Simulated assay, not measured.
Amino acid sequence: MKAAEQRVPLTDLYQGDHWAKAQALVPLASKAGFTPELWVASAGLGLRPVTDTAPAYAATFSLRHADSVAASPDDSARWWRCLQANDSKRSLASLSQRGHMLLVLSEAYANVMASDLDSLAQGANDTLLIGGAQSHPGITRVPSDATLRHALGGTLTSLNVRMAAAWLDRCSNARLTSPETRAAWNTWTAQVSKRETYNRLPLTDEAVIEFIRTNHAQHPGHSRTRMLRELRSQGLACEQKRFAHLYAVTVEKQ
């Protein structure tokens, strides 16, 4: 109980490449002429500024993740509405009244927040969505584009936030959605887009199990999804359902 009561700033609560790149958006936005505030959309906390504090938690809206808070998209949406129900001041619509808004959302989180995005779109002013799941009239959207990963580097997990950084590098006139910025973006993407092909090496069950054992011993906190990502990042192949079965046999039944 004592550990659960310990609160830390949100800037220190999250980890990984995606979070590091998200925090790096702040100086990039300042350089582009904005006065930025960084907020997080959290499956455990709702919409929060990173200056807030909270106890450590494990929650996500990614349905196949071990820490998923729901079994279906509808469940996730209801969970989000409950988190936000008693805090109208911390909504996308209220934040948009402060000025420009840059949203960086995965498909899973954008689906959960769809009603919030629709409300935001009704009064959005210079609002840009990187990633997301669908268009919302009134919000400029740049869908996630895997053909840019060759130029931006990193994993697909951090692609949206890397795209946001590249967009801010091209911002002009202290506006996110100016025609000049869009034109600069289109010119750049036309030059660097490259479709990726995968030639991964297939593994036997025994080799996959050995990888899982080694990875789990070195990183006991890694989820099954993260482990599979790391295997594939090494140029190795294993179908998701097969990996899940071997992971269960190797780790979950220990």
Rank of each mutant, 00 (worst) to 15 (best):
S96V: 10
S96F: 11
S96T: 12
S96P: 10
Q97G: 14
Q97V: 14
Q97A: 13
R98D: 06
R98Y: 14
G99P: 00
H100G: 11
M101C: 03
M101W: 02
L102A: 07
L102W: 05
L102I: 06
L102Q: 02
L103C: 10
L103D: 03
L103T: 08
V104S: 01
L105P: 12
L105H: 03
L105G: 07
L105D: 00
S106E: 01
E107C: 15
E107K: 07
A108P: 09
A108Y: 05
Y109E: 00
A110D: 00
N111K: 12
N111I: 15
V112M: 06
V112Y: 04
V112K: 02
M113F: 10
M113K: 12
A114D: 06
S115M: 13
D116M: 11
D116N: 13
D116Y: 09
D116T: 08
L117C: 03
S119A: 13
L120A: 08
L120T: 05
L120Y: 12
A121H: 05
A121P: 02
A121I: 01
Q122S: 13
Q122N: 07
Q122T: 11
G123E: 10
G123A: 09
G123M: 13
G123Y: 12
A124H: 03
N125M: 14
N125Y: 11
T127R: 09
L128C: 04
L128P: 01
L129T: 07
L129E: 01
L129H: 04
L129D: 00
L129M: 08
I130D: 09
G131E: 00
G131S: 02
G132R: 00
G132N: 06
G132K: 03
G132V: 06
Q134K: 14
Q134S: 11
Q134Y: 04
Q134L: 12
H136M: 05
H136D: 04
G138W: 03
G138F: 01
G138H: 08
G138P: 04
I139T: 07
I139P: 07
T140I: 10
R141D: 13
V142F: 15
V142A: 14
V142P: 15
V142S: 14
S144N: 10
D145W: 14
D145V: 07
A146L: 15
A146M: 09
T147W: 09
T147R: 14
T147Y: 14
T147H: 09
T147D: 15
T147N: 14
L148T: 06
R149E: 10
A151I: 07
A151G: 00
L152N: 03
G153Y: 05
G153C: 02
G154S: 12
G154T: 07
T155G: 09
T155W: 12
L156F: 15
L156K: 10
T157V: 15
T157H: 15
S158T: 03
S158C: 09
L159R: 09
L159V: 03
L159F: 09
L159S: 02
N160Y: 10
N160C: 11
N160Q: 12
N160A: 15
V161W: 09
V161N: 05
V161H: 08
R162E: 01
R162I: 01
R162Y: 01
M163A: 02
A164L: 06
A165K: 04
A165G: 09
A166D: 04
W167C: 11
W167I: 07
L168P: 01
D169F: 12
D169I: 11
D169S: 12
